[in-house]
Design a protein around this nucleic acid. Structure first.
Lengths: 336, 336
DNA sequence: CTGTTAGCGCATTCAA
DNA sequence: TTGAATGCGCTAACAG
């Protein structure tokens, strides 16, 4: 006799016996109540409650082929930029009964491919990626998985499946246009070495029409590196008038370095960041930056995945959420 | 004939057939190679590669009763304080083949209980919680689940199972002692309304020996609320000398409000935060704060869970990672 | 509305 | 070192 067995978790079988109904009736009463009479539902619910039944979604998913999990890949959880997206994604999915499983690619394309495989072995019902998938084999593997795939935080004509993002090239152009419109001509760029940062730089250069002193720092960029970046830029052009930074963290460092060198912002140097971090509005001076609605990206991505899972038709599989420049003190003209 | 079936994912069965071995041999070749001859391993690996086999961990876990998933509950992903913990937890678990599944309780005890149930339905091999579990039913449910449970970011004599944290009461006392040692007597507290913030306040008051003007703001606390909090504190005591804030975000707001009011920090008002956020060292003035090694908490929690899963004996199920006050300009004495 | 049957894909027994 | 049988807990498909 195995009376010492550490009371294995109650199964649906136990619930059915306790309620005096068949296994499948118990199953339906708990997951699809419309198919069962009210009295039976109550009996089953009472039984489940009484023996502390917790369903095993792994087992259910094996048969139904729906794991109720959605995978999301981010460069790193601690990158503040993607936090609102992950947060709203988690919430929206959770509201629909899905669990998010998060993977960190670490800005490494090789790792991304391996991670996609690892994630696939959990048989998620959908997958959300930050950025576009570049590796051809990974794209192919995702396509063959036959599940909804949402790429985010970027734009493309031919995503793997669906997409929620905006154009980084346009962001770069918009900032350059904004700088030029202010009359600044001696421009500089401080950017992380990630793909999307590179796209923004491209757009910036295209709008300027010529090359511009650039300091490239390893992603994820930080305040520390912003300080170094400004030093590097000033070495290249001591009369710099305006700097675009690929993140608010970098911009924060640029402001710190400017302060340390006695360079007045914005009078002597204008600074624009990217991301509209929560601290941007409260810095001294407050930071001009680019706002992207990261929470909306997460919400929309969740909706796309859920709709596709439910067989709902998708009106538009490519969503551009846009962006906007938020003007603050760090680029306000001194002699306006 | 079902030739139009959307090529269901390859199963181990397919691999076995392709390799000309039995199902179980294929299984062993891929997951427990020591039990199989080298030539067989190569055959099976080649077959798996050829047909693009991705194992189904859900199915494997059903029989083996190991889901290779670990659940983690945090108040909210976007709370910067827990980010290093979540990050290092994810990494350490991932290195050991485990997937983290994250749930957001939203500082809501009722939701925490429901969330624990939801998580349990995925049959995680372990669970990590930020803070202690207070609900008796939740504690009991966790205990009966029979999986490793790690509570974090707090201290207790009798955790549900294991614990990695530090004493918030001691943090509060340490800051109060630090303030008193500087000669400041007119003290104030700006704190979030969460449990751990309340503990720190308790410790603070105990060390001071009397009540102290307190502004309580809803968690998660923000810069905005820090500004309001200082306004509230100054209304209670216009000659305030030093403020302890329950987060660096709050402290940031307090500094901003002080600046707006022309109150010089630290000359007229000393400010201490909590959390050692990355911006703390770079503010103007730089912010004195309390550092807690959040990444270590995540690493240690992961190790406890993994060790317990492997049957390794746990030397000490209660780990105090401590804390330290980092002194910066915001509390440096003017006439020292 | 309820029940019976038959697996989902894999790993744990056992036996050879 | 390999294989055959069995079942993890649940649900889809059909029948009553």
């Amino acid at each position: 006799m195995n009376t010492a067995v550490p009371s294995k978790a109650a199964t649906l079988h136990d619930v059915a016996r306790e309620a005096g109904v068949s296994l499948i009736t118990a199953s339906r009463a708990l997951t699809n109540p419309k198919l069962v009479s009210d009295t039976t539902i109550l009996k089953v619910q009472a039984a489940a409650q009484a023996i502390g039944y917790i369903p095993n979604l792994l087992a259910g998913g094996l048969k139904s082929r729906r794991s109720l999990m959605v995978a999301a890949l981010v460069p790193a959880i601690s990158v503040a930029q993607f936090l609102p997206t992950v947060q709203s994604l988690t919430e929206a999915l959770s509201d629909a009964g899905y669990q998010l499983i998060l993977g960190q690619t670490g800005y490494d394309h090789a790792r991304e491919e391996a991670l996609i495989n690892t994630m696939m072995s959990r048989r998620p019902d959908g997958i959300v990626l930050t950025g576009l998938v570049h590796s051809a084999t990974a794209r192919e593997r995702l396509r063959r998985a036959g599940i909804p795939v949402v790429e985010t935080w970027d734009l493309s004509d031919r995503p793997v499946d669906m997409l929620v993002g905006f154009s980084h090239v346009k962001v770069g152009s918009a900032i350059a246009g904004y700088f030029l419109g202010k009359g600044w001509r001696r421009l500089g760029i401080a950017t992380g070495d990630d793909h999307r940062g590179a796209l923004r730089r491209e757009g910036f250069l295209a709008a300027v029409g010529k090359d511009v002193p650039t300091a490239v720092v390893p992603a994820p960029s930080s305040l520390e590196q912003g300080r170094r970046a400004l030093a590097e830029l000033l070495a290249k052009d001591s009369k710099l008038q305006a700097v675009y930074c690929s993140s608010d963290q970098l911009a924060q460092g640029v402001l710190a370095e400017a302060l340390a060198r006695g360079i007045r912002v914005p009078e002597e140097l204008a600074v624009c960041g990217f991301g509209n971090a929560d601290f941007a509005a409260h810095m001294q001076p407050s930071l001009t930056t680019v706002h992207v609605d990261g929470a909306a990206i997460g919400r929309l991505a969740a909706k796309l995945v859920i709709d596709r899972c439910n067989g709902t038709s998708i009106a538009n599989p490519i969503v551009d959420v846009g962006f906007r420049i938020i003007e603050r003190r760090s680029t306000s003209l001194s002699h306006a």
